[in-house]
């Protein structure tokens, strides 16, 4: 039974929400707009809203700076680490959700607590280890590290999703005489897939945007987009249009993925505490 909403009230809230929403989105909007300006238009005073749009910056970024290499590194590092972590996490979350022991809760809390360790606490040994193993500035090294840092969150997310699967259905299939692997393939997997997909999606977003290890452990070879964009911070002249074009390309795919993952984001990142 919804309360009656007066039209005035509705319009007022609508106007306020749109106004604030536009302010929040403005930096992104301005970046996208700037990416279509020439460098001179980009720093015009007063700022230009209407101008002769150009694709030049996108072409320049794509042609000049090995952009595709950085993009590829981002895909390999974010994708590789996520998939690898899922392979380890699925059995683990599975067993904790379906046959919990009295230690399960402690184990989960302990896993979460490993995430509490600030990365800077292990920066030195990780850096040196990768250096001695020849893995510094390699995609392999980054995939391994990123997999480890995201593993606790992935296990937690999966655990939250798996726990929602009713265990009665397992018992029913066992009564019908299903063997373990059949139980997994035909009964559990279809029910678990949405949770796995959500976890994959959310973790791709987190890994794509991770900017401590990617900045510290890579240089020319394995640098992903986070590091490539950071290279624009050097104060040699203003290249706002190119920065904007490179940034827009770097964030667009993930931002759109993010729009569709709002629900998963809430359940996943709050460990099921908020739904």
């Amino acid at each position: 039974m919804a309360r009656k909403v007066t039209l005035q009230r509705k319009l007022g809230f609508t106007a306020l929400a749109w106004f604030l929403g536009c302010i929040m989105f403005f930096p992104i909007f301005w970046m996208i707009l700037t990416s279509f300006k020439t460098e001179i238009d980009a720093i015009a005073s007063p700022p230009l809203v209407f101008f002769q749009a150009t694709w030049e910056n996108y072409q320049l970024v794509l042609n000049q700076s090995d952009y595709l290499k950085y993009f590829g590194n981002s895909v390999v590092i974010a994708g590789g680490s996520t998939i690898l972590a899922l392979l380890v996490a699925i059995p683990s979350a599975w067993s904790m959700a379906f046959s919990p022991t009295r230690h399960t809760k402690d184990v989960l809390m302990w896993m979460l607590s490993t995430k509490m360790m600030p990365p800077v606490g292990v920066l030195v040994p990780i850096y040196l280890m990768l250096k001695y193993m020849g893995l510094l500035d390699t995609r392999t090294g980054l995939v391994i590290i990123m997999m480890l840092i995201n593993l606790p969150i992935i296990i937690w997310m999966l655990y939250t999703y798996f726990k929602e699967i009713p265990s009665e259905i397992l018992e029913a299939s066992r009564m019908d005489g299903a063997v373990l692997w059949k139980e997994i393939v035909y009964v559990l997997l279809p029910m678990a897939l949405p949770g796995i997909a959500s976890t994959l999606l959310l973790n791709l977003i987190l890994a794509w945007n991770e900017a401590f290890w990617t900045l510290n452990l890579t240089a020319a070879n394995a640098a992903p987009l986070t590091a490539f964009i950071a290279s624009y911070s050097s104060p040699e002249g203003l290249f706002w249009s190119k920065l904007s074009a490179a940034s827009t390309m770097a964030i667009a795919p993930i931002m759109v993925l993010g729009w569709f993952s709002q629900k998963q984001l809430v359940t996943g990142l709050t460990f099921g505490a908020v739904k």
């Binding site: 749109w18 604030l20 536009c22 930096p27 970046m31 945007n209 900017a211 986070t226 964030i251 993010g258």
Partner: peptide, 16 residues
């Protein structure tokens, strides 16, 4: 509009 900034990588948002 409100949720978008969360998906922007830190180096991009800081530089913008």
């Amino acid at each position: 509009l409100f949720i978008s900034p969360f998906f922007i990588m830190p180096t991009v948002s800081a530089l913008i």
